[in-house]
């Protein structure tokens, strides 16, 4: 059996550095990082921080492609550092830079606040007409499986900003909302639990809407979660145009408690495990 160290190969991590308090402009610094099979870029960055330069800065959290913190430009393409194996994208030199189309806080840390502000502006949450029900819920918001399927793919977004970094329109256009906020806008536009289609259509008809998307498709090509923002934006356009020419599906929120309670209970299908017993005293099942 070969020694684990024999499998290690030295890679040069060429990292873009920038400290706004110290540097007048960004520069590149090389670090030699021994990488084994399966090692992801984030591991390499930790190696640099622990052994070579403790001042190197980046943002990361979950280490499993869920939190969306570690988006960065790897060999010229936006990726999650925790989701990208070094040997998959490089033979010897790996170029590591912060996401483009964002201001840089320091080194590999992009300022995501403008993106999240655009996301907020598009009212990316469920808005209901029945305010009393929202404040004092009497039942669940029921949704058919096909209604869920219509937006489920777009709900997998982790807001990492990779799509925003790849968008050629955003590179020059500050007003355009960009792929992430628009995808989330579409996700709520077609949610059958939502009751604000008219307000959303009006909002999306302004300059912040999807109209400046030229369908380059780069956002979908780089999305680490397979969300396909380009598709969401084209579907959003279609939805809004059909609504404009009065050929769209009339969209109203579905009422709460669509099915009578006695009709909801079904026999447990074979092979589906029972939920574990509650370990907190006094807790009750949501179904009760």
């Amino acid at each position: 059996m070969s020694n684990e160290n024999e499998k290690l190969q030295n890679f040069i991590f060429r990292v873009r550095r920038f400290d706004p308090g110290k540097d007048s402009e960004p520069y590149y610094e090389d670090f030699v990082v021994p990488c084994g099979p399966g090692m992801v870029v984030l591991d390499g960055l930790w190696y640099i921080k622990e052994h070579l330069d403790p001042t190197l800065s980046w943002r990361s959290s979950c280490r499993m492609g869920v939190c969306g913190s570690c988006g960065m430009l790897l060999n010229g393409k936006p990726h999650l550092a925790c989701h990208t194996q070094v040997r998959d994208i490089s033979k010897d030199i790996l170029l590591v830079a912060p996401l483009p189309n964002f201001n840089i806080v320091r080194d590999l840390v992009p300022d995501l606040a403008p993106m999240l502000e655009k996301h907020r502006k598009l009212n990316t949450r469920i808005i209901r007409e029945d305010i009393e029900e929202v404040l004092e819920p009497t039942d669940q918001y029921w949704q058919d499986p096909e209604d869920l399927t219509a937006y489920l793919q777009f709900a997998y977004c982790i807001k990492c900003g990779c799509c925003m970094a790849a968008c050629p329109t955003l590179a020059t256009d500050d007003v355009y909302s960009g792929p992430m906020p628009l995808t989330q806008g579409y996700r709520y536009l077609i949610d059958t639990r939502d009751g604000a289609f008219r307000e959303r259509a009006k909002l999306l008809s302004s300059e912040i809407g999807p109209w400046r998307c030229h369908y380059a498709g780069e956002c979908s090509a780089v999305c680490p979660k397979g969300v396909d923002p380009a598709r969401a934006i084209q579907l959003m356009k279609r939805e809004l145009v059909w609504d404009l020419v009065k050929l769209g599906k009339r969209r109203h929120q579905k009422p709460v408690g669509l099915l009578p309670k006695e009709n909801r209970a079904t026999e447990r299908r074979e092979g589906i495990a029972e939920a574990p017993e509650f370990t907190i005293e006094g807790a009750t099942s949501p179904a009760e």
Partner: peptide, 14 residues
């Protein structure tokens, strides 16, 4: 800012 881009874009395609 609030021009009806849905209408303008639809006419562009038509």
């Amino acid at each position: 800012m609030s021009s009806n881009n849905t209408r303008l874009w639809t006419w562009h395609v038509l």
